[in-house]
Structure formats: C-alpha cells, structure tokens
Design a protein around this nucleic acid. Structure first.
Lengths: 338, 338
DNA sequence: AACGTCACCGCAAACGTTTGCGGAACGATT
DNA sequence: AATCGTTCCGCAAACGTTTGCGGTGACGTT
C-alpha cells in the first residue's frame, strides 16, 4: 500500500468529473446520467478499482471486522471454533482478526488494546489459563463494543456467552464408567480458576458421590497435558493405588494417561477405563480408540458469532446478556467399553 | 463502535486546547509545555484513550495488518503455520487477518478482494486445491502489495515463497522403506495441480527408480484423505495386489490406510510399512506410531512472516523474489521400522 | 419575457489523526 | 522604541469516501 492503489479521485480525474459523481455513479444513484455511469463503471473495472475499506470504516464508524481472542490456535477444539467463526463472519460480509493469547495474561491484555484500537465491531473471547483479573474485558463493555465469551468465560462481566454443559457432560462421562462397574475413578483436572475446570470436576464429583463411592483426594490430580498425565500415572503406579477409571479434563491428557499405562503394561480398558473431553481428531485414532465428550467446537464458533452479529446489527445499548449452553455429547469408544 | 469511543477531539474540548496540541502532547513533542503535557496525559489515561487505528491507517497509508489466506484452519499443519505467523506479527506490532478459502477457488478469490480492500500491508497465501487460475494473485503483485507464498505456491507469480523440500523428503521417506527391504511400494498422491503434490510424487518415483524397482501405475493412487485411503486399501485387497509399503502425501491418509489395513487383519509394519507426511499431533498417537516427515509448520509460518515483514519495512519496488526451502525431517517410528 | 421543472453534477463537510507553517505573547537585547 | 528569540499553541490540509445541499443549463409553459 504505497499510493498506487486506485482511488475514486483517480477515476474522477481521468474522466474530468468530481469524486462525488464517481461515488454516486458506482452506487447507481439516479442523479447520474447513464452515459456517465457507463464511463465510470468501465474505467473502474479497467483499473480494477477496489473501494478503500479504511476510508469507509472511518466514515461509517464501523469496520465490519470482528476480533477474536483465542488461547492457542494449535488445538483441534480451538481451530474448529475459529473455523466456525470464520464461516459465519464470511457469509455476513465480516472479516476476522485473530489474536492469540498463548495462554498468557499479558498478551491477552495487549490483544484487547489492539482490538479496541482497531475499532472492531465486536469481540469474541475465550480467556487464557492465567487470567484472573478482568478489567480489560470490562473495558470492552465500557466502550460499548459487543462482546461474547465462548467456552472459557469471565465471571462478573456483563456479556453474552456460549458454553457447553461441562458439569453435565463430565457427570455423564464419569457415570458411564461407574455403570460399567468401575469403583476407583480418578480425575485429571484442569486449572481451577477456569470455570470449565471447576465444572468438569464438579460433574465428576457428583457422579462419584451419587454412586455412593468414596471421594479419594489422591485421585483428583491437577493434570491437563500429556506430560503431566504421564507423571501422574507413574505416581499412581509407584504408590500402588492405580484407579480403574480416569476421567480427564481433555483428550491429550487422556492420551498421555493411555500411553503411560500401556508403557507400564496395563491394558485399556481392562485394567483402566479412560474418558477424555473435547473430542478431537485424535480420538478415533488411538488404540484403543478414546471415549470422549464431543465439544462441538465448530458449532460453538457458529453460535458465538451469530450471537455477536445479532448484537452488532441491532446495536442496542441496553444489554440483557444471554447465555447459550451447548450439549456435550459423550461418545463411547474402545477405551471405556468392556 | 458507535461514537462513544474517546478521541483526541474529546480531550481537546475538555481541556480547551486544539486537537493538534493534544496530538503533540501525547507524542511528547518539545513544542508543548510540561504543564499541558501533564494535563493531556492525565486526561487521556483517565478516559482510557486509545488512538483510532483506522484514522492512522488512512493517514499513514499503512495498516500494520497482514492478511493470511489459508486453505483450512482445522489442520495441525496449517494451524501451526498460523501460530508462527501470529507470533512474529505480534512481536513486530502487526495484526493478522485470517481468511479461510476452505479449499474453494471462489472463496480464495473473494478473500483476495477483501484483503486488497482492507489495504493490508502484506499478504501470505497458500493456494487452495482447486486453484489453477492465478490472476487474482497477480492482482496483488500489480497493486504492489508484498506477497509471500507458503507451502503451496502459485507458479508464474513473481513473489517470495517458502516451501519445504518436498521432493527430497518424499525421496528419503520412500528410500527408507526400500532400505528396509520393501519391494512393492505404493504412493497415495495429492492433487497434481499443486506443486507439492507433484514434488512428493517425483521424490517417490526417484527413489523407486533409483532402486531399480518397477514403477507400477496401479500403485500410484490419487488419495489425500482418510476415506479415500480406506477405499484404496480395499481396492488393493480385492484385486490381490497389496503393496508392502505405502508413502502417503499426508498423515491423515496414512492413518486411513493404517486403519483400513488393520481392519483387514494386516499387521503394520510387518505386512505393510507406512510413512506419512507433515508430522502432526497424530503421529505419536497411533498404534504403531506413524513414521512421517516433519514439515515444521510453525517455523514455516515464522519464516514466511519474516520474509514478508522485510518486504513491507524496506518497501522496495524492485523485486528479486526469493525462495526459501525448509528441510523436511523424516521421523522414523513404528509404522515403518522392522 | 419571465418563470418553473427537470436532469445532472460539484462543493464542502465529516470521520480521527498528524504535521508544516504561521502567529501570539513575552522577555531580552540593541 | 524597535527588534529579535523563545516558547507555546492553533490553522488547515491531507488520507478516501459519502451525502446534503445548492447550482447550472436546457427546455417547456405561461
């Protein structure tokens, strides 16, 4: 972009008319003669004129851009969400600016500032694992920029949100193993400052308690990635208290557990049943295939963006925030089926 | 964005000074008295003033935005690339607009128009599987917008590109199986209008020929996804000409082959060796784990963005295009090790 | 001849910011 | 008293576009 892009003024100059005439001609305004319209449109096509979206944004006070803050793109779930967002945005004529927080609070902060500076028409946020202060998000609301949280919401912020029914899904996943006769079920939990971490643990606890089983604190381990899962498995083995079922906060953790157990010579699901969360491309591929909760990332992206676009287009300032709860579907595969 | 965002004018009005004074005060211009500077900065902080990036873009004729066209986000390789792009862009103070072509030519066309209209400072493109006409990409060059292709390049367009040494990597992958004594090696090939499809096939052919093996056309199948691989396997089985090694154009195809073969009761790697391409998160997870070529998506994103930023920042119009070739690393795992 | 009615088009302002230039006020120097 | 140098600030233009308003000329009607 160094000044050689064609503008309305260029067309006007070459045709010896004013910029306003060109503008109106391009819009088919009735005030302009057919002859002029033809000349303008022909020249515009010849020069491959593209209206300057920046000038339009400045004039119209809207950018037709929506900003997305995402913890990490390289995750099946999150990239599915982006895909859903992008599809809906595209069909509505909106563009998408992606900002990755990399699970860092500082970067999330910077992302919010950037998106506000860019005057995006709306923002979609899933907060980072580190985020416990929410002033920057409040700032979005204060600036009257429509805001929708997806998956990981910020408590206390008056905004729309779309989540899945984490507790219920976690309950179903755990109950499923109990129904198969498992008695000592562990939970590999996520960060407890994230609502989804709390909810999934709650669901697990509910199922365990409801079945009259003992809640063993040693069976609740904070482990939310491959390596931590492997270490947790080793701990179980060395301490001699291996569970007979594990509900993990996500798939990659479950797979870490699977690989760890198999390395130790244990059989899945015979010795230990496994259920993950947020059904990724992995699940069908492991041996045995992994039971998991399908989190419907693509649908979540679609839903969140639709909610956001609704806010943007009807731009009402009175804000009765809405919460949409998607159902997570437990998909039973080889890792938990006897 | 409906006019309630704080502008320089708001600050100026409240302080009874002009907009120019506020602007200079915020930049620490020496013409402005310390007293005024303090007043301006205090008020700006209090009102949480954020400079309007759109106005700046219009004035400066640069947006500090780079546009990315990507075939499909929901792929480990492509999402890794985005991650690399986003990291470099962020550190350089640039934003990233993502456009997904969904492997459709029409959508790619529309994406290009959008990015030009948005007057992005540079564009990164990996072309769709359908793209055989390149005028829209030439349009980018004509508009003097810096352009870098990554992974899937467009022939005949005078622009930078970063690719991996597909032929060599494919050659190594195939040769590796030959070295292990395989004699009847098949290739599951990608679309041949994509350079990467051609190159990987070339590498395969080179290794086969070099070993003095016969090139059997029945062993070269156009199959680049899970389902097509499964069908191809079935064909092999029913026709009774099962290969003893398969080099696939990507991992998901290799995994389709693996699952298909296992379902038929064949042993991997004993009966058939498998090697995939573009090492994803999958590879370590299958049973047996999948040999693959690590395509270094994250590094590719970094390299491409660095090349692009260089073009943007030095903004020279004379264009000796550069091609960077990254090395793909063959990673040998259980699926091809005897 | 005076007026009205069209059809067609241009002027200028506005969006928010930066910046060259000019100018006011003041003290200091001749 | 006139001039000069500083210090500090405002005016206006520019980026590309849209749009209300006004203007011009041609033609028809009285």
């Amino acid at each position: 972009m160094k000044g050689n892009q064609v503008t309305i003024k260029d067309i006007a100059r070459q045709l010896g008319v004013s910029a306003s005439t060109v503008s109106r001609a391009l819009q088919g305004h009735p005030d302009i003669s057919e002859e002029t319209k033809r000349a303008v449109n022909d020249l515009a096509a010849k020069l491959k004129y593209q209206p300057n979206a920046i000038a339009l944004s400045l004039k119209n006070q809207r950018t037709r851009i929506i900003g997305v803050i995402i913890p990490e793109i390289v995750h099946y779930f999150f990239s599915s969400v982006i895909s859903g967002i992008e599809d809906v945005a595209y069909n509505a004529g909106f563009n998408v600016i992606i900002c990755q927080s990399n699970e860092k609070f500082d970067r999330e902060l910077s992302n919010v500032k950037t998106l506000i500076a860019q005057r995006v028409d709306g923002i979609l946020v899933s907060i980072s694992k580190e985020t416990i202060d929410f002033q920057h998000l409040q700032q979005i609301v204060n600036n009257q920029i429509p805001l929708v949280f997806y998956d990981r919401v910020a408590p206390g912020i008056f905004a729309d949100q779309v989540i899945i029914n984490d507790m219920e899904a976690a309950y179903q996943a755990t109950k499923h193993m109990i129904d198969q006769g498992r008695k000592r079920i562990a939970h590999f939990a996520g960060p407890q400052n994230l609502l989804i971490g709390q909810q999934r643990k709650e669901g697990y606890l509910k199922a365990v308690r409801e079945a009259g089983l003992e809640v063993d604190p040693r069976y609740i381990v904070e482990a939310d990635n491959y390596e931590k899962a492997q270490r947790a498995i080793l701990n179980f083995v060395t301490e001699g208290n291996l569970p007979d079922g594990i509900f993990s906060v996500n798939d990659i953790t479950a797979i870490g557990a699977m690989k760890g157990l198999q390395k130790q010579g244990f059989k899945i699901p015979d010795d230990v049943a496994l259920v993950g969360f947020s059904d990724g491309r992995f699940s069908g591929i492991t041996e045995p295939s992994l039971s998991s909760v399908d989190q419907h990332g693509y649908e979540m992206g679609i839903t969140a963006t639709e909610m956001l676009l609704k806010r943007i287009l009807e731009n009402k300032t009175d804000y009765p925030p809405e919460t949409k709860v998607l159902e997570g579907d437990l998909i039973i595969r080889g890792s938990s089926r006897l």
